[in-house]
Amino acid sequence: MHMADALISPAVGTTMWAATAGTAAYSIKKIQNDIDEKKIPLMGVMGAFVFAAQMINFTIPATGSSGHLGGGLLLAILLGPYAGFLTMASILIIQALFFADGGLLALGCNIFNMGFYTCFIGYPLIYKRIMSKGYSSTRIFIGAMLSAIIGLQLGAFSVVIETLLSGKTELPFGTFVLLMQPIHLAIGVVEGLVTATVVKFVYNTRPEVIEKASLGHALGDISIKKVLSTLAIFAVLTGGILSWFASAYPDGLEWSMLKTSGKEELDAPNGIHQTLEKIQEKTAFLPDYTFKANEEESLEDESQEAWPAVSSGTTVSGVVGGSMTLVLACIIGIITNIIKKNKKKEKTKAV
């Protein structure tokens, strides 16, 4: 559900940039209550894991479409909503800048659509309320499923609203919304299953991680080495190998656009759209998660000979992109922790 710049107007793009920046600033302020030296690496590893997971598109039977994990709910459950939102922002920034996955003008829309609804609506209003009655496999499954579905439905509906407000007549509201919502319902079911599986593993391994995230507490003296190492291994395997077998079908957004307008992509107008596209062409060294030299070849040559070049580019993208996300998420965590410590020092001096 990564929106391209061609889908939105400059006014909508800048408005959503402002909304996302405001939410990020608020999250940085609030995360200071529970950030510590152990949550920082967890943010990085979770960011790498979700980055890798988003590379795997799974086929939606009988539709000719595919979907991928969003990951916002999973991040909120393991990190708390504020750290979860900031980690999602890290993932999407890396994807847009270096892999041309989602536009730069649309980056604010993408972060908001994939991060806000899961972290600040699905997690606190649905998941936590279900878990308030006690943790169990059944409640984790129900909570993850309902939260993932509703969060994704809200995100998909926001895409439709953003294109409507941008005046994209190629995507009439009625037709577009009737395609976007059902296809993302199917994607939400798979996301719920994956989220529940990962949460169950973490809860069985270190339940304190999830409990402290729910309470907004720092991890303290909890040992999370097993959780970190397992998630790191899965991130490498997912991004480096399993991503080779991602579905080639268009994702839910592209499929809905194709059925609505006859095209998977809209033409970007001149002006700021073209300017940002040129910037992205320079920063994206692995566009669409493959080497630039092989990108056109893979589009023209769908034979088996082209597959090794594409898969090697996918492996590099998964490992490098996951590593870059890990670093960026950790940097955000480190800066936030420094701010927290400086504020404590100032309060101590004042006393």
Rank of each mutant, 00 (worst) to 15 (best):
G262Y: 01
G262S: 05
G262W: 00
K263H: 11
K263G: 03
E264N: 05
E264Q: 11
E264Y: 00
E264I: 00
E265G: 00
E265W: 06
E265A: 09
E265Q: 06
E265H: 05
L266D: 01
L266T: 12
L266E: 03
D267F: 11
D267N: 12
A268H: 13
A268M: 07
P269E: 14
N270K: 15
N270F: 07
N270D: 15
G271F: 04
H273V: 05
H273D: 04
Q274W: 05
Q274L: 13
T275C: 04
T275A: 13
L276W: 02
L276H: 05
L276I: 02
L276C: 05
L276E: 04
E277T: 01
E277I: 11
K278Q: 13
K278N: 11
K278R: 12
K278I: 00
K278C: 04
I279P: 02
Q280N: 15
Q280S: 07
Q280R: 02
Q280G: 05
Q280D: 07
Q280P: 01
K282Y: 14
K282D: 14
K282I: 15
K282C: 09
K282L: 15
K282S: 15
T283R: 08
T283M: 14
A284E: 03
A284M: 00
F285G: 08
F285M: 07
F285D: 00
F285A: 08
F285L: 03
L286D: 08
L286E: 12
P287R: 03
P287F: 08
D288L: 11
D288R: 12
Y289K: 14
Y289L: 08
T290W: 14
T290L: 12
T290S: 13
F291I: 06
F291H: 12
K292H: 11
A293F: 11
A293P: 04
A293I: 12
A293E: 14
A293K: 12
N294S: 12
N294L: 13
N294F: 14
N294W: 10
E295C: 07
E295P: 01
E295Q: 15
E295R: 07
E296V: 15
E296W: 01
E296A: 14
E296L: 11
E297C: 01
E297H: 07
E297Y: 08
E297M: 09
E297F: 01
S298F: 07
S298T: 11
S298A: 04
S298N: 09
L299R: 12
L299S: 04
E300W: 03
E300T: 11
E300Q: 13
E300K: 00
E300N: 12
E300A: 10
E300F: 06
D301N: 12
D301M: 08
D301S: 02
D301L: 13
D301Y: 10
D301K: 09
D301Q: 13
D301R: 04
E302A: 09
E302Y: 13
E302C: 14
S303V: 07
S303F: 09
S303W: 06
Q304V: 14
Q304M: 15
Q304T: 10
Q304W: 14
E305M: 04
E305R: 06
E305V: 09
E305H: 06
A306D: 00
A306M: 03
A306C: 06
A306L: 00
W307A: 14
W307R: 13
W307V: 10
